[in-house]
């Protein structure tokens, strides 16, 4: 695995150039550039705030809107990594057919692109939270850094998995859409986590790794604390598991994948 990572690092000029190219295309095409892609979570937040803040008693908009916005931003990254990840080998098909280089490079390209966008959105979220309720403990924001690193590795691993499965089975992306849709409701994105806990449905959240991962973002951002040791350890375990899954999948069929493209 070290040799594999070294190979990837040696080719950094290649994939970093492609990522830059992707980002340039993404942001150059639209008149407002970045604006459009940020508009979606902002609009969603606004609408959902209107609707749900009336449904959920005992929670003010000032508190609810940051929960929503941070959740939707987190979710947009996960979805982008996995959905676009699906296509990453097909996108790199012509390179794959000519050169023997580590296949993990292609999902990496996708996730770096999505990750960049995630970081930009996160800056907007931070500004938003600051306006809505301010930060009691600014240094806690640095607690985002380990979480972001873990999230990035997790997303890369998952993108490798979806990309591989999508080459082997053409309905992977459809299936993934459904799975993500379901997960969206099983993850405390649109609602405060304590809502389910009060209704004795806490176990749903407990067994959902995304609940843990979302804590990496929300604890520093909304609760003014560093991520708790619990959250960090659990996230680390989840990330390691995802890396193992990706590594096993690649070891099993990386070399043969070219026949299925």
């Amino acid at each position: 695995m070290t040799a594999y990572m070294t190979d990837i690092w040696k080719l950094r000029n290649f994939w970093m150039a492609l990522v830059r190219n992707d980002l340039r295309n993404r942001y150059r095409r639209s008149l407002l550039g970045l604006g459009w892609s940020l508009l979606q979570p902002i609009a969603m937040t606004a609408v959902l705030c209107l609707v749900f803040s009336n449904l959920f008693d005992g929670i003010s908009i000032r508190e609810f809107a940051p929960i929503l916005f941070s959740g939707l931003t987190f979710w947009a990254f996960i979805v982008a990594a996995m959905n676009q990840g699906c296509q990453s080998f097909f996108q790199g098909e012509s390179y794959i057919r000519q050169h023997r280089i580590p296949l993990a490079i292609y999902p990496l390209r996708t996730v770096l692109g999505a990750g960049y966008h995630f970081l930009v959105s996160l800056v907007v979220v931070i500004g938003f939270v600051w306006i809505m309720k301010g930060f009691g403990n600014v240094p806690a924001l640095f607690g985002l850094i380990p979480g972001l690193l873990l999230l990035f590795v997790f997303a890369w691993s998952m993108a490798i998995c979806t990309a591989t499965l999508n080459v082997l089975f053409h309905d992977t992306s459809h299936l993934l859409e459904i799975v993500l849709q379901i997960l969206f409701y099983l993850t405390p994105i649109m609602y405060p986590p304590k809502l389910l806990q009060e209704k004795n449905l806490g176990w749903v959240l407990q067994w959902n790794p995304l609940t843990t991962l979302i804590g990496l973002i929300r604890q520093p951002l909304l609760e003014d604390t560093l991520p708790s040791a619990n959250t960090l350890m659990a996230s680390l375990a989840i990330t390691v598991a995802s890396v193992l899954l990706a590594a096993i999948l690649l070891r099993w069929c990386e070399r043969r994948l070219v026949f299925h493209l």
Partner: peptide
Amino acid sequence: SLFDISLGFEHEASGWDNIRYRSYLQGE
């Protein structure tokens, strides 16, 4: 290797950029 060489371009990028991408791919 020189086969399928007319494949593998980033279509939105300029010729200059594509020269770079391919060279990087060859380890430069």
